[in-house]
Design a protein around this nucleic acid. Structure first.
Lengths: 341, 341
DNA sequence: ATGAAAGCGCTAACAA
DNA sequence: TTGTTAGCGCTTTCAT
C-alpha cells in the first residue's frame, strides 16, 4: 500500500528546499526563481502531492465551503436553486453543503453547527420567511436569502419579482377576455403569496375590475390544496371563468377538480400556474404557466455571497428576477366574451 | 463588536484549568472530576464557546463530511437519494456535500478535489455506470454506489432490485390479460435498463410468451423519448395492448403519443411506469407505476458508508430494495381478453 | 530569493 | 484527576 500521502514537507525535502518555498509555489506567489519553481512543480507532479484543504482552512481561517439551507432537497424549485448555487460556487473554488431543515428549530440547530463550529464561510438560505426560520439566521455572518427578505438593511436577497409575475399571469387571463377571475394563493403568511396576490389585484384594478374576496382561496402549494380550493369555490356557488393558481401544483389540483365537476379546461375554465415545473407540458392539458429560472437565482445567490466574502464592505442588494409567460393549452379566450359588453 | 470567538484556551484560562481538561469535557471523556466538569460546562455556556470543527478535523485527520456525486441535483430520483443520505449523515454527526458532475471528466476533477484534497471522508456516487464515470472513482477510498455496481469485490452498493421491479410491473400487465406487450427501455448501456429488460423477459417467458424484439424500443429516460418510441412502434405497424415503460417520464411520453394517435389510455392501451414520481397521480390518466423509495436508498447508502468508515474491515455488501405496485388508472384489463382463449 | 519560527485550535500521548 | 508537550499540514511574518 502506498505509505501515507506526501505533505508539503516531503516535497520540500525531495527538492532540497524549505517547505515554505513549496508553499509559495503551490500558491503561485512571487519570490521564487523560475527555475526553482519548475523543478518543484515537477516533483509535486511526480510525487502526486495535493495540498490538504483542511490544513489550509486551518491556517487561513476560512473553509472555502458554503452551505445552502432549504426546507427540503427534493422540491424541484429548491433543487434548482441548489444546483445553480453549487455550479457557481464550484466554478469559483468553493464547495456547497446542502441541508434540509424542516422546522425553525431544525434550522436553529443546523445554523449552530454550520456557523458556530465554523464549518462554512457563508450561507444561502431558501425561503427563510416561509415560517419563523429567519429568526435563527445570524445577521453578523455572510448570508444571502433566496425568496423575500424583510431585513433589507443587513441581508442580501435574490428572489423572483413575485408581484410582477402575478401581474403578468393575470394580464394573460384578462387579455383572453376573462372577467371573473379566481385565485388560489399559497399560505398567506409567506411574503411570496402576499406579493403574488398584490400583482393579481393590481392587474384587476387596472382592468377596472374589483377583486371579489369570495373568489380568492388560500392553499398550501400542494396539488390537493388546489383541488380543495376549487371545490370550495364551487360549493360557495362561484363560477369563475379563469383561475390564477400561484404555483403549478395547485393549478394541477384545480384542473383535476374542475374535470371532476364536469368542467372542461380550457373550454369552460382557463387555468394558469407559476413555475413551469418539469413535465408541465405533458400534463393534460399542457399547462400555461409563468416560467422561472430558479437555477439562475441560485447562481446569483452564490455569486452575491462570494462577493460579500471577498469584500465585506460589499453594498447589499436585493435582486429580483422576471419570469416568462409560457402559453400552452390550459388557457383560451373567453367564448363570446368581450364583444357583447 | 464581539472580539474574536473564544477558543478552548480562553475557556481553560477562565476556568483555571489546562486546555486539555476542557478538551476532555467537550469530548465527554473520562477522567474529569464531576465537579470540575460542571464548572467548565457552565463557563462554556457562559462564554458561548463552540469547538472549531476545522481544528478538530485537523488533528483527528477526518472531516466528518461526506460527499454525494450525482449527474444532477434536480432529478427527483437523485434529489431523493441525496435527501435521504443527508438526513442519515446529519443524524450521525456528518455533513453531506452534494455536487453534480455531468460528464466523466467532471467526475474525475470533482473526485480529485474532494478526495485528493482530503475534503471528505467518504463518497456516495449515484449512477456511476450511466457512463464511464465509475472509472474515476478510487477503490481505495470509502465509497458506496447507488445503482448497479460491477466492481462487486471492492465497492458497496445500494440499488433497486431492477430485475424484480420490471418482473412485477410486467406481471401486472399480464394478469390484466394483455398478451402483446411492448417495452420502452432506458439507454441499454446502463445496467439498470438491462436488468429491467431481463425482468420483463422473464415474466413473459413464464407466461409462455416470447418477447418480440420489434416491440422493444430504446429510450433515454426522457418523456419525449417515450413519445418517439411509441410513434416508432406505430410506424412499424405494431399495435401493442400494453406498454411497460422503464420509467414514469417515458410512460408519460407513451401516453401522449397514444392519445395523439387516437388511442385511449387505458381503454385501448395500458401503460405502466417505474418511479412513482411526484404528481404521478395527477397525470391524465393517473399513472399506474412501481413506487420506489429512493430516500430510503440514500439513507442506506449513507448508513453503509458510515459503517465502513468506523470499521474498515466492514464486509462489503450489495443491498437491493423492492418497489411496490401502485395501481391507478393507466392500466385496465384487456377487453374480452383471456376468456376467449 | 529563500529559510526559520510561530501559530491556526484542537487532540493524543505521556507525565505528574 | 490533571497538566505538559507534541504534533496535524499548512500560511504568515520576519529574518537572512
Amino acid at each position: 500500500m502506498a505509505s501515507r500521502r506526501p505533505t508539503i514537507h516531503d516535497v520540500a525535502r525531495q527538492a532540497g528546499v524549505s517547505h515554505q518555498t513549496v508553499s509559495r509555489v503551490i500558491n503561485e506567489k512571487e519570490g521564487v526563481l523560475a527555475e526553482t519553481r519548475t523543478r518543484i512543480k515537477a516533483i509535486i507532479a511526480e510525487m502526486g502531492f495535493q495540498p490538504n484543504a483542511i490544513a489550509r482552512s486551518m491556517s487561513k481561517g476560512q473553509t472555502h465551503t458554503l452551505a445552502c439551507i432549504a426546507p427540503n432537497l427534493t422540491d424541484y424549485t429548491f433543487a434548482s436553486v441548489i444546483e445553480g448555487a453549487e455550479n457557481e460556487a464550484r466554478q469559483r473554488g468553493y464547495f456547497l453543503l446542502s441541508s434540509s431543515a424542516v422546522t425553525p428549530e431544525a434550522t436553529r440547530d443546523l445554523v449552530a453547527e454550520l456557523v458556530g463550529h465554523r464549518r462554512v464561510d457563508g450561507l444561502v438560505v431558501i425561503n427563510p420567511y416561509a415560517d419563523e426560520r429567519y429568526r435563527y439566521i445570524p445577521d453578523n455572518f455572510p448570508v444571502v436569502f433566496v425568496g423575500a427578505c424583510s431585513r433589507k438593511d443587513c441581508i442580501e436577497s435574490v428572489s423572483l419579482d413575485d408581484e410582477m409575475v402575478a401581474y403578468e399571469a393575470t394580464r394573460h387571463l384578462l387579455l383572453l377576455g376573462h372577467r371573473v377571475l379566481a385565485m388560489v394563493t399559497g399560505p398567506m403568511r409567506e411574503d411570496c403569496s402576499q406579493d403574488r396576490s398584490k400583482g393579481f389585484r393590481r392587474a384587476l384594478a387596472e382592468a377596472g375590475l374589483r377583486p371579489d374576496l369570495g373568489l380568492i382561496v388560500e392553499g398550501d402549494w400542494s396539488a390537493s390544496s388546489g383541488q380543495d380550493a376549487f371545490f370550495h369555490l364551487l360549493e360557495q356557488g362561484q363560477s369563475p371563468q379563469a383561475v390564477f393558481a400561484q404555483n403549478d401544483r395547485m393549478a394541477m389540483g384545480v384542473i383535476r377538480a374542475a374535470r371532476q365537476a364536469g368542467l372542461r379546461v380550457p373550454e369552460n375554465l382557463s387555468v394558469i400556474g407559476v413555475d413551469d415545473m418539469p413535465l408541465a407540458s405533458y400534463f393534460e392539458p399542457p399547462l400555461t404557466t409563468m416560467h422561472q429560472d430558479m437555477q439562475q437565482l441560485g447562481q446569483e445567490a452564490a455569486r452575491l455571497l462570494l462577493s460579500k466574502l471577498q469584500d465585506p464592505s460589499f453594498r447589499h442588494s436585493h435582486v429580483k428576477f422576471p419570469a416568462q409567460l409560457v402559453i400552452r393549452q390550459s388557457t383560451m379566450s373567453q367564448k363570446g366574451g368581450e364583444r357583447h359588453s
